[in-house]
Nucleic acid binder design. Structure first.
Lengths: 196, 196
DNA sequence: GTCTATATTGCGATAGAC
DNA sequence: GTCTATCGCAATATAGAC
């Protein structure tokens, strides 16, 4: 196997395993077997299991901080928020493992939390806070809104919907076919909740 | 040490360790040392590490399904939702580890997920769904609201606020002194979001 | 760059003394 | 009910052959 292929194959097969079982729930033997690669290759390329985990997280969180919607100057605040929600949904659909790394690091942080995860989350929240306070100066929203509470409410509505999926499949239809409805629903509640 | 004391001491010291590091992140040796108890006591009382973990989860999730607010017949739907939010906040303040077990099991499920965690979450969501559809028949809410999306939005707003704390301490004031404001803020957005 | 074989450590669980 | 000592195993990592 060519070097790049080998490295990529290891990372690709490691993603679902780490995502489902956590860093401590998978062994290097299991990772090597799943990638159909010799066990020593993991140390050779990544310096060990933790190095591989860090490489996986680096790759996963690179997408999170790419916020295409921030600089759309012609869009107003609520349109930007909707773009954030849409981007979040499509990111989770494209990559069903990202949210697991996200919340797993929040609840059982590894060394990567401080270096990769926390900065990424902070950046997203900071950008949303800036977007909201921009909107406040144009007096579109009702008085008394706390920026942090408002932004975290929106973030929570969309993220927790996906997080709860494994526990609520029997109660709630989580199929991608409903995503458009879901987005409109959340934006409806949020918009009515903060407008004058 | 008396038997009950010993068992309780093991469980009590195991809670923060399991919560922070996950089932696979702690060893029985570490648990025994922290509880100042002989290592063999964990097998003796709980049949092993997984048994102890199950006992911890059982204890943690017992509080989650105690929903005092459901049967308050004189309260209307929105008041019940507010009681749910208040109960959630006070639960997380009293027990800072519950949410970690909650989300850790959602992202990296163990054997306890199907037996303890999923039933507990389903029950809460089911009760909230019933409460909401009750409210719908009295036509208090605007048309076109999807019950599941609406309920999960409320659940997400309050839960994700606490989940994000480790990543946003520098951006957002998460002190308990702000809880009352937070609750009102979330209920404000939610209420305006769903009323006619 | 890839393999086998192995060094070393730590794990969970328990037998058996008291 | 509590202890020590230990068994058997799986873990990560790497030395050294090719």
């Amino acid at each position: 196997m060519a070097e790049k292929d080998c490295q990529n194959s290891i990372i690709t097969t490691a993603i679902p395993l780490f995502a489902m079982k956590g860093l401590n729930g998978v062994s290097v033997r299991e990772l090597a077997r799943a990638a159909d690669v010799n066990i020593s290759m993991i140390s050779y390329y990544f310096g060990g299991k933790e190095g591989l985990y860090a490489a996986v997280l680096e790759e996963q969180f690179a997408t999170l901080t790419r916020l295409e919607w921030v600089d759309q100057m012609e869009k107003d605040t609520l349109e930007k928020f909707e773009m954030y929600v849409r981007a979040t949904v499509s990111r989770y659909r494209k990559n069903p493992y990202l949210l697991r790394f996200y919340t797993s690091e929040l609840t059982n942080p590894t060394a990567c939390f401080e270096t990769i995860v926390k900065p990424a989350i902070k950046k997203v929240v900071q950008v949303l806070l800036n977007t909201f306070t921009d909107g406040l100066t144009h007096e579109k929203f009702r008085d008394g809104l706390n920026p942090a509470d408002t932004v975290l409410a929106l973030v929570g509505m969309i993220n927790f919907y996906f997080l709860l999926e494994p526990a609520t499949t029997e109660l709630v239809d989580h199929s991608p076919g409903r995503d458009e409805l879901l987005i409109c629903h959340i934006m409806d509640i949020f918009t009515r909740g903060i407008l004058k």
